[in-house]
């Protein structure tokens, strides 16, 4: 089944917000972030893994995340991400922005109440 292009575009824009949100609760590596977002959204969000890693790297470059390599119990070593105070501030700003955006979208999309003749 092909991915809905509109949802995919929305996901790209929201990727930093979603990644920071799940990382607020603790350290995770890339694949865990994907799984967590998928589970949290009851499968409604299937984040594009191809845009997740550039987003994580960008956030790390900007100082919002710290990354560290750790050996896995089994399998290859993994790169774990941890949110920083800069990341928390960015998350707060994104929450605010997203809430305002969401309200505005709903206002536009809501059907106007029929007015009496």
């Amino acid at each position: 089944m092909g991915r809905d292009p509109l949802r995919s575009e929305l996901m790209k824009g929201a990727m930093a917000y979603l990644a920071l949100s799940v990382l607020r609760e603790g350290e995770l590596y890339g694949y865990q972030i994907v799984v967590k977002i998928r589970e949290r959204s009851d499968g409604a969000f299937a984040p594009s893994e191809g845009s997740l890693y550039p987003t994580l790297h960008r956030l790390e470059t900007e100082g919002g995340l710290e990354a560290v390599w750790r050996d896995g119990d089994k399998g290859p070593r993994r790169r774990w991400y941890r949110i920083t105070p800069v990341g928390l501030a960015k998350l707060a700003a994104l929450e605010e922005e997203w809430a305002a955006f969401s309200v505005a979208v709903h206002r536009v999309a809501a059907r106007p109440e029929p007015t009496g003749a």
């Binding site: 590596y29 893994e49 399998g75 993994r78």
Partner: peptide
Amino acid sequence: GEALEELNSHLSDAAAG
């Protein structure tokens, strides 16, 4: 090298999933 290692471990995890 680091980016490729990260993608490789992601692919291993995703394939296992």
